[in-house]
């Protein structure tokens, strides 16, 4: 009874599957936000991670079970399997001691919504203004951008014709985006989802 129970932001949702598109949450990924100037922390970070930090827009770097996503010229998101964030944090923190940097555990801040399948780009095009065409957005790329009315990081893996579009989203936006993605996939057979944000409001000024 006292054993703590962890709940992911989309724990109340079941994966959605249709012939050409599927949607699911990948919960509890370890995520660390790393800030620092490449000239200041680049070498130490590279030795701790096992690979240099990506240095330009769109780039990602993979080292073992760590993926580093470029978010800005002094800003990275390090993604690692669930539970690995503490160890990674300690290792990096030790390596960066004495440098001007900021390392923050954001594993609980964000969750990942994976939209996969041949129609994944068509579905997400309805919510995102950026160019999702494989000529512009290739597997292995990261984009910080807007999805509907929320900021997201879009990390693309898989292949050009069967991409995995991973949206890294704030936990409080996860259900909103989940439902809009389902709505956008309706023509491909995804079932409609009702947002949990549909609740009783007390609005005395309007009564």
């Amino acid at each position: 009874m006292t054993e703590p129970v962890a709940a992911s932001p989309l724990a109340h949702r079941e994966p959605l599957t249709a012939e050409r598109v599927s949607v699911s949450e990948t919960a509890f990924l370890g995520m660390l936000s790393l800030r620092g100037r490449p000239a200041t922390i680049g070498e130490q970070a590279a030795s701790a991670l096992g690979a240099p930090l990506p240095s330009a827009v769109g780039e990602t770097a993979v080292a073992g079970n760590i993926t580093a996503l470029w978010l800005g010229p002094d800003d990275w998101l390090l993604v690692t399997p669930p539970g690995n964030e503490a160890a990674l944090g300690t290792k990096l923190s030790d390596a960066l001691t004495g440098t001007h940097h900021q390392l923050t555990d954001v594993s609980d801040y964000y969750t990942a919504i994976d939209v996969t399948g041949a129609a994944a780009r068509d579905v997400m095009s309805k919510l995102m203004v950026i160019d999702l065409h494989p000529r512009a957005l290739k597997p292995g790329m990261i984009v910080a951008t807007v999805c509907a009315k929320a900021n997201v990081w879009l990390h693309v893996t898989g292949s050009a014709d069967r991409p995995v579009l991973r949206l890294i989203v704030r936990r409080s936006h996860a259900d909103y985006l989940w439902c809009l993605i389902a709505e956008s996939g309706r023509e491909f057979g995804l079932p409609p989802q009702l947002p949990v944000g549909r609740v009783k409001l007390h609005l005395p000024h309007f009564e």
Partner: peptide, 23 residues
């Protein structure tokens, strides 16, 4: 219901379950 993000807290369902009204 899809008009605008309605951000919910990790405790949201606990409030719903006991019949809270929201703002």
């Amino acid at each position: 219901a899809n008009f605008h993000p309605r951000r919910t807290t990790p405790m949201h369902e606990a409030h719903v379950e006991v019949g809270a009204t929201f703002e």
